[in-house]
Simulated scan of single mutants.
Amino acid sequence: MKIKKSLSLLTLIAAGLLRFEPVQAEVAETDSFKQFIGNMVKQQHFNEVELRKLFKVVQIQQPILDAMSKPAEGKPWFQYREIFMTEARIAGGVQFWKDNEAALKAVESQYGVPAEIIIAIIGVETKYGAFTGKYRVIDALATLAFAYPPRSEFFLKELEQFLLLAREERIDPLQPMGSYAGAMGLPQFMPSSFRGYAKDLDMDGKRNIWTNSADAIASVANYFVRNQWRAGAPIAYPVSARGEAYRQALGKGVKPDVSVGELRRMAVDIPAQLAASEMVKLLAYQQQEGEDLWLGLHNFYVITRYNHSPLYAMAVYQLSQAIAARKG
């Protein structure tokens, strides 16, 4: 019986009716790969022999391609929220605050970004460093640059940025680990973000966002400031509405695009302290029954510069509030 099953399986494979994708494979010598190598040699002055030797051990990984097809942001809000608003993440955030109080206080004073927002970013991204990624960064970036056409342009640029940062920081490019998308360290910076925003808070000569909490904290704060964070300004407000007129203000995107005055005319009940001229974003979050309405202000939009999903930004905001409330 076992022999018959084996023969049947072999017959199916031979007939092409069953296909098995390899879990990993070498980077193919495609036109895209050749062009990338040529650009790195000509424009960034890399050694072609050394670069080709490096890519001989880089692997295209099928699990990375699979993960790209099912991001968490595809879930409705009530399911997405459950991932991050947990007792473990709230308690972990309070502990991270206690463990890094000096760095957080110094960074908040220097940059004007609240400690709880920085902590929540690191909490949502990596659960305070517990899950920083299981893939080699170079494998993730190469897989998505050369084997994922929908985003190849973006990831080709990030692969270039990664090789540049490895050279600048004197890091073996085969060593850093990260997410399936090539995000790195406690704050999950993409290589371009690392080069643009990573900071060396303890002044030890290294921008270490992998194991140095102080550097990671300062790097997150710097990211927000460089994206126009307004110190002391509010972030978001829950609101309610009467009737259905407010629905015309709901739309795609996360950038503030409607004035408070306009929303009040649509029967949206908004906190009195907000000026009629202030631009905001009206957002609806799906619950199991009905929806929650929120106003996203400028600083909420800044959070979405870290991740463009309004689900992500709201998870960060609500987690930050829960951590701050728990810490007291």
Rank of each mutant, 00 (worst) to 15 (best):
E160W: 12
G296A: 05
I138M: 06
Y223V: 02
E158Q: 11
N227F: 09
S179Y: 10
K34F: 01
G261V: 10
F55I: 04
F300H: 09
T11S: 13
Y135N: 05
L297W: 04
N212C: 13
M266F: 07
V302W: 02
H308R: 15
P256H: 06
G243Q: 11
L159N: 11
E289G: 10
K281P: 01
F20W: 11
D215I: 04
G16I: 11
V107H: 11
F96W: 05
T30A: 08
K5R: 15
E87L: 06
D257P: 00
L18W: 10
D204Y: 04
T132P: 01
P256Q: 13
R305I: 04
A15F: 07
I37L: 07
A272Y: 07
A14Y: 10
Y306G: 04
I235G: 10
D99N: 13
A249H: 05
F33E: 01
P191H: 08
I118Q: 09
R89N: 14
A115G: 10
A181F: 08
N208E: 00
I138G: 04
M266D: 04
T11R: 13
S259M: 10
R151E: 02
D269P: 00
A106V: 02
A166I: 10
L65C: 12
P310D: 13
V137F: 07
L12M: 14
D99E: 09
A130I: 10
G178R: 06
M184S: 08
A214T: 01
A145R: 07
I60W: 09
R247G: 01
S193N: 11
V260G: 04
I13H: 07
A130S: 15
G261A: 15
A272C: 08
A221T: 07
F146S: 10
Q248Y: 03
K70C: 06
P238M: 09
W229T: 06
L263K: 02
F33I: 01
W77T: 02
I118K: 11
